[in-house]
Design a protein around this nucleic acid. Sequence first.
DNA 1: GCGGTGACGGCCT
DNA 2: AAGGCCGCCACCG
Length: 103
Amino acid sequence: MEKKILTPDLVHAILSAVDQIPAGKVASYGQIASLIGRPWNARLVGRVLSMAVCPGQHPCHRVLNHAGRTAPEFHEQRDLLESEGVVFLENGKVDMSACQWQF
DNA sequence: GCGGTGACGGCCT
DNA sequence: AAGGCCGCCACCG
């Protein structure tokens, strides 16, 4: 199973994991990477999300980094998360300790 | 084939 | 507690 990388199948696995994130919850790239079987490739997850999908199809806005910060050019991401009930701190970060998705 | 870069993660200062 | 640096693997030039 784990041979090639960044294949449509792997991308689908990432999108599938992201799609499983419930509203009001968030997940880190590392967590998604772990789900697909590549915890050391968290950067690849972000690359795929930014490149493959975003609007409507998959809740990519629910995916944050380990710092609890949103994507650099994805400002609307915060509005989407707040709409779902995710708690944003005054410092512009998400309270992952309370909103991190647990499967 | 080599070097540089990156929607990251963890440790150190 | 917050910020900065290095290290990880994969992709692009």
